[in-house]
């Protein structure tokens, strides 16, 4: 839940990048850290383990400037994708205001995407939140791998698997080169701020 400091006219919200292991959540944040210098308000913190796998979470603070008379600070987090870090994922998700679900376009990761989305739904439910109501954006990452001759899923298949009921905004991406990263983030920020404006009746 966003922290609204009325005295300081400050609002702090939390966006979590969720998805299966090795889908590119950290790569998204790394690109944002490199490319949105103006908005980045601190260092990116990564706590990873063997093979550059996220162990606890990644953290990236951003300042979006003044919106409707309030200083808006966004904090981006990633969760560890590996199945065994289930309790850490749940912990990182606490107090979330918006979610970017990063799906892996590789055909062989089809089942993992669906399991990760189910895991997200379950963990949100445990905080009395609904995946249908939270600001959510889907990103279909690794679209470039088709050029290397690897079997990737067509967007239609990803939409059918993951977004058939959610009907959330979705974007193709190549997080490694930054393609689609900014668009995904901007859409999630937009949805999150809109949602907060409505729920906190902020600026009305």
């Amino acid at each position: 839940m966003a922290i609204f400091n009325l005295q300081k006219r400050e609002i702090e919200c939390k966006i979590v990048y969720y998805g299966p292991g090795r889908c590119g959540k950290t790569t998204n944040l790394e690109y944002i850290f490199k490319s949105f210098k103006k908005q980045i308000s601190g260092d990116m913190v990564s706590i990873d383990t063997e093979g550059d796998r996220t162990l606890f979470f990644d953290f990236l603070p951003m300042g979006l400037g003044q919106i409707k008379g309030c200083d808006v600070r966004m904090q981006l987090y990633t969760v560890p994708g590996q199945v065994k870090y289930s309790s850490t994922r749940k912990l990182v998700l606490r107090g979330v205001d918006g979610v970017v679900f990063v799906a892996d376009s590789l055909e062989i990761r089809r089942n993992k995407n669906m399991l990760a989305l189910k895991d997200l739904e379950q963990n949100l439910k445990e905080y009395n939140m609904s995946i249908f109501k939270i600001p959510l954006v889907l990103q279909y990452n690794k679209r470039d791998l088709a050029e290397q001759g690897l079997p990737i899923m067509p967007i239609e298949m990803l939409e059918h698997d993951l977004n058939r009921q959610l009907k959330a905004p979705s974007f193709p991406a190549v997080a490694f080169t930054g393609e689609g990263v900014g668009t995904t983030l901007k859409e999630c920020l937009k949805l999150t701020l809109k949602h907060l404006q409505k729920s906190l009746q902020w600026g009305q």
């Binding site: 839940m1 383990t49 063997e50 093979g51 162990l55 904090q75 606490r94």
Partner: peptide, 26 residues
């Protein structure tokens, strides 16, 4: 094997511990 054997809870720097303490108290 390296991934399996990697420590689940390695000791992290005081700065990151501070961050955890700050960001995970609601």
């Amino acid at each position: 094997q390296k991934i399996i054997k990697a420590e689940m809870h390695p000791k992290i720097s005081a700065r990151i511990q501070d961050l955890i303490q700050e960001k995970f108290s609601f």
